[in-house]
Amino acid sequence: MKRIFLASLVIIITLMSSSCKKDKSTKCYISIKDITGFYRITKVMIGGADVTSTYMTPCRQSANLQLYNDKTAIYEETGASCTGTSGGTWDLNLTTNKISVATGGNIVNITDATVTSWDCSSLVVSGNYSGSDYQVTLVRYQIP
């Protein structure tokens, strides 16, 4: 009787511990579908220097950059008395992992930047503009 009880206990513990394991197989692909979302720009580096506080005015800090599956892009400042809103397009070259985002009035103008990091929530792109290397970090807060 004790053996049956112990064997049953071992089986139950084994089943419980294996059923509680979390699935860590979520893949983050660099694709239009997976990168689509609403972002906030959280960090801007130019020439290796962090210029976030200089570049990110209160209105830009409140802004969201919406990248849609149909490759439309919308920049919208949501803070009080902020008026920056503009539409445009975005694209991703799946062969080179280069992304481009352009909204009207050059509010957001990222051209052929390399996706250097993507973990399904934080997108880091880097490139060169007018001879200066830059890196921009965008954090996704919503998937449309």
Rank of each mutant, 00 (worst) to 15 (best):
63 A>V: 10
86 S>V: 12
75 Y>V: 08
52 T>A: 02
28 C>Q: 06
87 G>S: 09
69 N>F: 13
68 Y>W: 11
61 Q>G: 07
47 G>Q: 06
53 S>P: 03
22 K>R: 13
74 I>P: 00
47 G>K: 11
69 N>I: 15
69 N>K: 15
31 S>Y: 00
68 Y>E: 14
79 G>C: 05
40 R>V: 12
38 F>Y: 14
84 G>S: 12
48 G>C: 01
90 W>L: 10
83 T>G: 09
96 T>C: 02
91 D>N: 14
77 E>Q: 09
98 K>F: 08
53 S>M: 06
75 Y>R: 07
76 E>I: 14
45 M>Y: 03
29 Y>G: 11
83 T>P: 00
22 K>D: 10
71 K>M: 12
33 K>T: 12
60 R>W: 05
23 D>Y: 01
48 G>A: 03
60 R>K: 13
61 Q>M: 11
86 S>I: 11
101 V>D: 01
26 T>K: 12
35 I>Y: 01
63 A>H: 07
101 V>S: 03
36 T>I: 00
63 A>R: 06
98 K>Q: 13
91 D>F: 03
22 K>V: 10
52 T>E: 07
34 D>A: 03
78 T>P: 00
56 M>H: 04
34 D>S: 03
100 S>W: 02
22 K>Q: 08
83 T>K: 07
83 T>H: 07
38 F>N: 14
50 D>F: 00
85 T>Y: 03
49 A>I: 15
73 A>R: 10
55 Y>H: 04
66 Q>Y: 10
24 K>P: 07
93 N>D: 09
93 N>C: 01
89 T>W: 00
76 E>M: 08
64 N>Y: 14
69 N>S: 14
97 N>W: 05
